[in-house]
């Protein structure tokens, strides 16, 4: 059921001739007690799914905005357990699928099998681990499969054709197409060949292809969505929520249609 919830959400969007929009928020940033309310707010804005960041002390794939959000969350005492407990509270009523993004060590410290089963209990549909490449994913695949949780893989601008092929064939949940060579965070523009790259990914991927990293304006959302199945927006959403600018979040998500 968990993974299927994600597949259904993407299918619904595609059937309506629309594009997916997956906002990222850092769990515990702004207080854990407000987490479920934020999730409901994003769902009401039209989020297709929500990416929930679990903070890690050394987030090497993240730029300054998400690093800072992670530090705020950790300073507020956020842990894997408190986040999962919090989201589990509204599991029954929640319709929007949740995907967790974190680094391998918090999962490893929790215990991979225990983590997968706790995620399933909390109603999590997928997991993104940016420091777990294809070569090492055996560490988690079995545990996730057992709990029916999608391992969402990242494909990079630097990925070779053979790696793209391997990642596309294994894709589940969605294929996360990293749109920049670098970390998360706002960018003014993207490389010229990005559209061709994204389009090629949609042709080989077994799951929807979502573009992410640096996507920060309604123009970016519209531009990139032409070439693939939708976008992931992180830093901009984290920043807007931190500033209390919910209108900006609404406008961004609305730009998916």
């Amino acid at each position: 059921m968990t993974k299927a919830k994600l597949d259904t959400a993407f299918q619904t969007v595609a059937d309506a001739g629309e594009k997916a929009f997956v906002p990222y928020i850092m769990a515990g940033d702004g207080g854990l007690s407000g987490l479920n309310e934020r999730i409901r707010f994003l769902a009401d804005c039209g989020a297709t799914a929500i990416e929930l960041g679990l903070p890690f002390s050394d987030p090497v794939a993240d730029g300054p905005t998400i690093q800072a959000a992670g530090i705020r969350a950790l300073e507020a005492g956020t842990t894997v357990q408190t986040v999962l407990d919090e989201v589990a509270k509204e599991k029954a009523s929640r319709t929007v699928p949740l995907v967790i993004m974190t680094y391998l060590n918090p999962v490893f410290a929790y215990g991979v099998e225990a983590f997968a089963s706790a995620c399933a209990e909390a109603g999590i549909s997928g997991l993104i681990l940016p420091d777990l490449p294809l070569e090492e994913e055996g560490m988690v695949t079995e545990a996730l499969k057992k709990q029916d949780i999608a391992l969402i893989r990242l494909v990079a601008l630097t990925s070779t054709p053979a790696r793209i092929q391997a990642l596309a064939e294994r894709a589940e949940g969605f294929l996360y197409a990293v749109t920049v060579a670098g970390t998360t965070g706002e960018r003014a523009s993207f490389v010229d060949q990005l559209g061709t790259h994204l389009k090629a990914l949609t042709e080989v991927s077994k799951a929807p292809v979502l573009a992410g990293f640096g996507v920060s304006t309604p123009e970016h959302v519209r531009e990139l969505s032409q070439y693939c199945d939708g976008v992931v927006v992180g830093s901009k959403i984290v920043d807007a929520l931190h500033q209390g600018n919910r209108q900006q979040v609404k406008d961004l998500i609305a730009s998916r249609k």
Binding site: V60, E135, L154, A156, T158, R163, L167
Partner: peptide
Amino acid sequence: GRFVPETLMPA
């Protein structure tokens, strides 16, 4: 092991 982002894996 080699626990790095995909962007670095080819390098």
